[in-house]
């Protein structure tokens, strides 16, 4: 069982959350001319590192806020959590 610290509610069990995937994937800027390749890369490519991974979680059975979680993908250690709009280190 993972215990995730929600910046709004405190430490809660993973059962209250839904996973939202890699938080470092950046949507290309609106109204900017981009190539098909850039768009495909945004939609499909993932680094999926072993080790530190910044990811989105949705506190769906709690405050319903999206948060960012920095977690180790091999040990499941959670280093830090952020509000969705908070800048990460």
């Amino acid at each position: 069982m993972l215990y995730i610290f929600c910046p709004h509610c405190g430490s809660r069990s993973q059962n209250e959350f839904a996973y939202g995937g890699d938080a470092t994937v950046k949507r290309p800027e609106l109204n900017k001319e981009i190539s098909d390749q850039e768009w495909d890369n945004f939609v499909y490519l993932r680094k999926s590192p072993r080790g530190k991974h910044l990811e989105l979680w949705h506190h769906i059975s709690g405050c319903r806020q999206w948060i960012k979680v920095e977690r180790d993908t091999s040990t499941h250690e959670i280093f830090k959590t952020y509000k969705a709009d908070e800048l990460t280190e």
């Binding site: 993972l2 991974h53 993908t73 499941h76």
Partner: peptide, 13 residues
């Protein structure tokens, strides 16, 4: 299990 993992062991939920 529902989130990126390299751990080769599972979670109870």
């Amino acid at each position: 299990d529902g989130y990126n993992s390299y751990s080769q062991r599972g979670n109870l939920p």
